[in-house]
Write a protein that binds this DNA or RNA. Structure first.
Lengths: 206, 206
DNA sequence: CATCAATCATGACCGTAGTCATCTTTATTC
DNA sequence: GAATAAAGATGACTACGGTCATGATTGATG
């Protein structure tokens, strides 16, 4: 059985990796991320500490895997939305607002993720970050070319500004006392407000 | 000499605290913040590790003192600006843009401070944060009451959005390769763009 | 099956932030 | 000035993330 199918070695590797990931997120959900130590994870996954770091060079690397799953989904949904034809601003906005639902589903983990993002721990050169970034930029360019946003402003700038507000709103929501305000409504409100300066006239004078 | 003037004890305490602060920032400037260990600081300040933590419960606490000096200055400059009469949006903007000069003066330290801010390490309940926050909000309210910003939007929301863009621009500048783009010009550009959605009409149609 | 090379697992070890019981210095009281 | 109490200084110690030389497993080869 030299190359037929996956070798036992490969299988074991996959199993170990899966196991580490599984118990990690179990512990993270139960006790929080900061409160979970690598030692605990290793204990629960029944591997030596060194083994953990063979698979994941840093504790935070674990989240790369979550991110991958997440951005896959995001790309799928955007592509799906685009099949319906070129989007209006409102449609694009709603699509991105829906992604924020992730944070509502798992607030604890979301909190950590948002922090990690804030502190620049997600390497911008990292594939997940690149893809998520690209996704936003694509949509902005498309909206510009459809006259939904003014075309005389650098799309990267628009993207960055909208991204700021998006991110900050989520952080604010994560920090707000229970019960938190409706995240998606607030996102809609803020994004709309800002985008009025980026090519959409306010619907009412001041 | 029971209560006449400060006791030797008090003097020594002050001296020690000052010495720790001084050598800390020396080392931070020379080698960077992350690269400077508490042990090194203690060595240079000639105190035991425990003593350091008597004065500063966390390594990061050192920055509270920088922040205080900084926000004092900021308050002074805003008050001074307000003496000239109620500000236009442009004047207010310029005042705040000038504060960003701090980051240009000491990029290394600025980098760390911005990171710390991003990662929410600055306790919002902390006095420095509260004061800096208050400063921004005051100016927004004033601008609104002068008709410089639309009054039908929650000032806290405007404040937050402008704060996002302000902060993010600084972070982007800190991360940009040398030589960095002109920070203050970029701030002016972005803040203006965003504020157009908050009550100022664009000067040109799209 | 025996041998060998590559790969993977292991836990002792390191550096760093932060804690704590203990000892030292200072101010007070007689 | 000796005794005492309070405040402060100290460094050994812990917890945690991360490294690395070494040993065990696996797959390939004759």
């Amino acid at each position: 059985m030299t190359e037929l199918e996956v070798s036992r070695r490969e299988r074991k590797k996959e199993e170990t990796k899966e196991r580490i990931l599984r118990v990690s997120f179990e512990l993270f959900r139960k006790h929080g991320v900061e409160a979970t130590t690598v030692d605990q994870i290793c204990e629960a996954a029944d591997v030596a500490k060194g083994t953990f770091f063979n698979y994941f060079p840093h504790k935070e690397e674990l989240f790369g895997y979550l991110g991958e799953v997440w951005v896959d989904e995001a790309e799928r949904r955007v592509a799906e939305a685009l099949e319906q034809g070129p989007p209006t601003w409102e449609q694009a906005r709603e699509t991105f607002i829906e992604f924020a639902g992730y944070y509502e589903e798992d607030r604890n983990l979301g909190k950590y993720m948002a922090q990690e993002w804030s502190r620049g721990r997600f390497d911008p050169a990292d594939e997940v970050c690149r893809r998520w970034d690209e996704l936003g930029k694509q949509v902005i360019v498309l909206l510009q070319s459809r006259g939904e946003l003014r075309a005389d402003v650098d799309p990267a700038l628009i993207h960055r500004i909208l991204g700021d507000v998006y991110h900050d709103t989520i952080v604010m929501w994560l920090e707000s006392p229970e019960p938190p305000f409706p995240l998606q409504d607030e996102l809609r409100r803020r994004l709309t407000l800002v985008v009025e300066g980026l090519g959409r006239k306010p619907k009412e004078g001041r």
